[in-house]
Computed example of a mutant assay.
Amino acid sequence: MHSPLNRDVPVYVAGHTGLVGSACVRLLRRRGFTRVVTASSAELDLRDHEATAGFLRRHRPEVVLLAAARVGGIAANHAAPADFLSDNLRIQLSIMDAARALRIPRLLFLGSSCIYPRDCPQPIHESVLLSGPLEPTNEAYAVAKIAGVTQVSSVRRQDGLPWISAMPTNLYGPGDSFDPERSHVLPALLRKFDEAVREDAGTVTVWGTGTPRREFLHVDDLAEACLTLLEHYDDDSPVNVGTGEDLTIAALAELVAATVGFRGRIAFDPRRPDGTPRKVLDISTIRALGWAPRIGLAEGLRSTYAWYRGAQEVVVR
């Protein structure tokens, strides 16, 4: 069993400019960590094995939080599966190989709930990993993340390093990508409904049938979960991190519409893919460690929308 981290040890957050990494940096600094190590993609290409190894040798972190990844929604995954597979494999291998060579004692690899089979019992328990076929729309990304989980467990067995993995559900919050071609469903809907209000559109069309069910976790809650796991979890099994609650995409669209003030018609396009029918996580493992989500979806949507509008105003200026 791990123990609380010394606030003066160097902690490397890989992917600190992204949604997850930025939330982890905010939390670590708020909790008094004095040596948070970061590097932007302009400073360090994590796909470069030698450059990454050199960076870790220079900074000698005692903790690595591996939040770096190439991410995107259904459209992005469908358009560039080879890129998602290659980039994520290289990022993971570069960081973990370097961390292994240095025998860095604590590493948390962040995967994704998409690693689980498309059709499996709900809520999804960690034990169903590799028990069935993946969802085709994000198979390449999922395979890369499964490789990361396998690498963590392999290092544990071969080298005795107590590394761990966490599998977050669908995330949202400040720092998310609202790019119409690459974003996930929640930020995509926020942008779409916001634009509809500003253009005085009468109808907003949502991809798919609206029937799939999804679970959403605020990224600040995930950051809290990451620290909880680093300090209190030491086991080979990946740990689910979510809310344990889900809703239909249709219900999510209605909630987003209410958040941004859209009063028109919501239509659905069944020609577009739905993805996995349902995906909600069993979070009993991390709940047993004392963690629980604190930010409700309605509250989180309001704050995320406020952040998005603020970011838009900065761009306009």
Rank of each mutant, 00 (worst) to 15 (best):
A196K: 01
H125K: 14
S177I: 02
G54M: 01
I74F: 02
S40Y: 05
L247E: 15
E199P: 02
V152C: 11
G21R: 07
E231A: 07
E299Q: 15
E215A: 08
L161A: 01
F33R: 01
R272C: 05
F33W: 04
A188T: 08
L108Q: 05
V256N: 02
D236K: 07
V197E: 02
S94R: 02
E299N: 14
E135N: 13
S113F: 11
V155Y: 04
T248R: 04
G175W: 11
F193K: 13
L247S: 11
G202F: 00
P168R: 06
E254N: 07
W163E: 10
R7F: 00
L217C: 08
P4C: 11
T38S: 03
R103N: 09
H78L: 13
L56F: 15
K192T: 15
K279H: 10
L189H: 08
A250P: 05
L130F: 06
T209F: 00
E195W: 12
T259M: 12
P273W: 00
A144E: 10
H184A: 03
I249F: 11
R118W: 00
L222E: 07
G160D: 04
D87A: 15
C114K: 00
A250T: 10
S3Y: 06
L66C: 11
L190D: 10
R31H: 09
T52Q: 13
A298P: 01
Y116H: 12
D200Q: 09
E62L: 15
T38C: 15
A80N: 13
R156C: 08
Q122I: 06
T243L: 01
T276W: 01
T205C: 09
A39I: 02
H16C: 10
E135S: 09
G73F: 05
V63F: 07
